[in-house]
Design a protein around this nucleic acid. Structure first.
Length: 831
RNA sequence: GGGCGGGUGGCGGAACUGGCAGACGCGCCGGACUUAGGAUCCGGUGCCGAAAGGCUUGAGGGUUCGAGUCCCUCCCUGCCCACCA
């Protein structure tokens, strides 16, 4: 027996962790008749030790998973490791150790930490993406997607990270052309690469967002913007020499106001249209643009500049000739790389026109109100929709209608049509690095690029690779890997030496957890039917447009392959805030404000740490680490501990005694049932574990205020204590389990609190019969009266008027009006 | 520039569809118990004021019997996107 009255987490936590494991308490699939719930946290990248951010994600997810299990669901709550990727390889280059070795060590450390924190994971399903039994299925997917045309090889302008010495995805380029991972400069480089045709799914991915009602709106908005559908029209402007400049515009309704056209400096027609006398200047400009950093050149703060090509293009709507310029602000990659400029109705065009003295022509007037001033008086472009003016046959039409009619007109005449453009680009996933999934193709001198046969998977990463971080890809330097035979002709061939982007690994791991050891297929459709989609997915909002878009894409691919059935991989997304240092700044070695879970568990125990994380703020908010607050949570658990032991005798009174509870004992019962309701609600809707825990604290405070004098009171105390232990179980599972068994007694000794049913509240006890009703005079609080919840206005008014303080404020005044809100307040309006 | 959040005591944060602002915790003050307390228990704690009372949710206006909550104007701040035609 551990009946000492000091709360000592060190002695109890490992014991319960062992008990849960022995019992297999958190294995999914043990309640086949029950409804399922799949709770998933983003798996960690085991690059170093576990940090507080990990502690937060898994604590939030764990509370959810544990509570759902207690509510009777068959819960799947798996964990694994996102183990392949550049950081591990970079670290390996630095200290000369093999990434596999290093990663394995980190995984061991991570696993130990997670177990010490008592997370209710189904460890039987643990997976690591660096195992060939996992990444072989990346290769399998690659082959299927190649067959379907979703994977293709392209000669592309790629983002080349000068630090990682590899191509990275668009999404991995962050501010000022920096690599999202290593923060080195990113430059453009033209190389052949493999890409996923994610753009073919753009519409589906966009449409799917509207069904994601339980995702934070800001995440769906970010995805919507990233996918970036824009509806417009392509229009061909003829230039001398039989060429046409095709422009893309979302405002074809303004085309009668087009006074010039602009090409991107890289546009293929630049050389052709430039007149001989302008050639020198144009070439110099193009050359200068090429040398300027992309972001520097196209950033919004960059001043607009350009040069005239000497050419004139014909606006097919008006037949008028407009000058053709090239300018830094037109992007070659977007639309057609050429724009028509309407300075009166586009701010950029206006700025450019003013700078170079180009004409401005107003062609849209507001549907109502004042007309737009003449072109010379225009200070800002008028970008609103309106009614067309000076637009030939389209004059008088509202913008929206004009756009439709004008696009149709263009199509009829064969010089354009309605068109949709996307911001989303295909996902280039080739990486010239070692620590990733080998791309399963061989290059045969005779047959070209040939896919590896399914039965030859996996193409295993060779252990003996030499990783230097420079020169050609590491795999190219391993002859035993490179030299192979062609699956088609049998002749000598070379293996592809590129590996896949790590985001491939994390795009479908949630489905692999269903059958992590299945060696016949990546995902079992039967199990997918049972367990998918993920019900709650917890992770950081920084994945809004990378992982969270990729995995939606991959899910759709898997559905095409018949592996899964639902449209979307996950129903509900919870994005958690950052854990900052005690000084409110982001935890960083630089500030010396890093706090890691390990030492905190040593000092306070896992339960205190978990409670702190959940109590500090709602999950989505950032929190600051606070040693004092942590002390407070430890103190709370100690108080719980002491009151359980101080009230042990309450566990011996007969159950029936509860019925006799009155007075203080009845008040306690009410409090208990209200607490059950409140804590239960903290798991629903917006997660508000902080207020749930606050409610538990209130109940514990109430227990300290009551010295039970009879069996009825003791029974009420017991009821409250049982509730405290049960409600605490998702948050502080070890302490809860210990109190449940050791104090509550032998009746429950061979059961686990983790598997007990979640308590329900008695509505009759939750509803109060008398309440305090606020009394206001002219909206100011002047007193409070006790009355039955059902008391009517007359009764409450009489009580209120009897209050001295209220009387003082009513004295000598006429009551003009009385506002009565039953059960809440009464307000005398006097004058 | 655009989108989405935020601004509430000394601090973290509560407050359902407009209805007693400041739950709970931290910190602080006091008391009890103690050889001792940085343990524990009890009490207090938005601000001004001796009190009565007044004031108070970033600033200013409005609607309302009543506004942290709704409307308008503005300020500050976090995140994301950013010359996307």
């Amino acid at each position: 027996m551990t009946m000492n009255d000091r709360y000592d987490p060190k002695s109890i936590e490992p014991r319960w962790q062992a008990r849960w494991e022995e019992a297999g308490a958190f294995r999914a699939g043990r309640r086949p008749g029950a409804e399922k719930r799949y709770v998933l946290e983003m798996f960690p990248y085991p690059s170093g030790a576990m940090h507080m951010g990990h502690g937060r994600v898994y604590t939030i997810g764990d509370a959810l998973a544990r509570q759902l299990r207690m509510r009777g669901y068959d819960v799947l709550h798996p964990i694994g490791f996102d183990a392949l990727g550049l950081p591990a390889e970079n670290a390996a280059i630095k200290d000369g150790r093999h990434p596999a070795e290093r990663t394995r060590e980190n995984i061991v450390a991570f696993r130990a930490e997670m177990k010490r924190l008592g997370y209710a994971f189904d460890w039987d399903r643990e997976l690591s993406t660096c195992d060939a039994e996992y990444y072989r299925w990346n290769q399998w997917f690659f082959l299927r997607m190649l067959e379907q045309g979703i994977v293709y090889r392209r000669q592309g302008k790629a983002n080349w990270c000068t630090g990682c010495q590899t191509v990275i995805a668009n999404e991995q380029v962050v501010d000022e052309s920096r690599c999202e991972r290593c923060e080195s400069a990113v430059v453009e480089k033209v190389i052949p690469e493999w890409a996923f045709r994610i753009t073919a799914f753009a519409q589906e991915l966009l449409d799917g967002l509207s069904g994601l009602a339980e995702w934070p709106e800001r995440i769906t908005t970010m995805q919507r913007n990233w996918i970036g559908r824009s509806d417009g029209a392509d229009v061909d402007f003829a230039v001398p020499g039989g060429e046409t400049i095709r422009v893309f515009t979302t405002r074809v309704d303004t085309i009668f106001g087009c006074t010039y056209a602009v090409l991107a400096p890289e546009h293929p027609l630049v050389e052709k249209v430039t007149t001989p006398e302008r050639r020198g200047e144009v070439r110099a400009f193009v050359e200068r643009m090429r040398k300027t950093d992309v972001l520097e050149r196209t950033g919004e703060n960059a001043p607009k500049e350009g040069v005239f090509t000497g050419a004139r293009a014909v606006n097919p709507f008006t037949g008028a000739e407009v000058p053709v310029w090239i300018a830094n602000f037109v992007l070659a990659e977007y639309g057609t790389g050429a724009v028509m400029s309407v300075p009166a109705h586009d701010q950029r065009d206006l700025e450019f026109a003013r700078k170079y003295g180009l004409p401005v022509k107003v062609v849209i007037q507001p549907a109502k109100g004042e007309r737009i001033p003449g072109p010379d008086a225009l200070e800002r472009a008028s970008t609103e929709d309106g009614v067309l003016d000076a637009s030939g046959p389209f004059t008088g039409l509202p913008s929206a209608e004009a756009r439709r009619k004008m696009a149709a007109h263009a199509e009829e005449r064969g010089f354009g049509k309605a068109e949709v453009r996307w911001h989303l680009r295909d996902w280039g996933f080739s990486r010239q690095r070692y620590w990733g999934t080998p791309i399963p193709v061989v290059h045969c001198p005779k047959d070209g690029t040939v896919p590896v046969r399914d039965e030859d998977l996996p193409v295993v990463l060779p252990e003996e690779a030499i990783i230097t971080g420079t020169g050609e890809p590491p795999l190219a330097k391993v002859p035993s890997f490179v030299e192979t035979s062609c699956p088609k002709c049998g002749g000598p061939a070379r293996r592809e030496v590129e590996t896949m982007d790590t985001f491939v690994d994390s795009s479908w791991y949630y489905a692999r957890y269903l059958s992590p050891r299945d060696d016949r297929r990546p995902v079992d459709p039967e199990l997918a039917r049972r367990w998918l989609p993920v019900d709650v997915y917890v992770g950081g909002p920084e994945h809004a447009v990378m992982h969270l878009l990729y995995f939606r894409f991959w899910h759709r691919v898997m559905r095409r392959l018949g592996l899964v059935h639902e449209d979307e991989p996950c129903r509900r997304l919870v994005t958690q805030g950052i854990v900052n240092g005690p000084d409110g700044r982001k935890m960083s070695k630089r500030w010396g404000n890093v706090v890691t879970p390990g030492p905190m568990v040593d000092r306070y125990g896992a339960d205190t740490l978990r409670l702190f994380i959940l109590f500090a703020a709602p999950p989505e908010k950032d929190i600051d680490w606070s040693d004092e607050q942590v002390d407070g949570l430890f103190r709370f658990l100690s108080r719980v501990w002491r009151i359980f032991h101080a009230r042990q005798d309450c566990f011996r009174v007969p159950e029936a005694a509860l019925a006799g509870a009155g007075g203080e004992a009845l008040e306690l019962r009410r409090k208990t049932h209200r607490t059950i309701k409140k804590v239960t609600e903290s798991f629903e809707g917006e997660l508000k574990f902080n207020t749930g825990i606050a409610a538990l604290m209130e109940l514990v405070n109430a227990l300290y205020q009551l010295e039970p004098a009879d069996d009825a009171a003791r029974a009420a105390v017991r009821e409250a204590l049982v509730a405290v232990a049960t409600l605490l179980a998702p948050f502080a599972p070890h302490a809860a389990e210990e109190l449940w068994h050791e104090v509550i007694g032998p009746a429950v000794r061979d059961r686990l609190l983790a598997e007990e049913p979640w308590p329900g509240h008695d509505p009759a006890l939750v509803a109060a019969d008398t309440v305090g009703i606020a009394v206001q005079v002219n909206g100011k609080l002047r007193g409070e009266v006790q009355a039955s919840v059902t008391a009517g206005e007359a009764e409450v008014r009489a009580l209120a008027e009897a209050e001295e303080r209220v009387r003082a404020h009513l004295a000598g005044k006429t009551v003009r009006k009385v506002v009565f809100v039953p059960g809440r307040l009464i307000n005398f309006v006097v004058g």
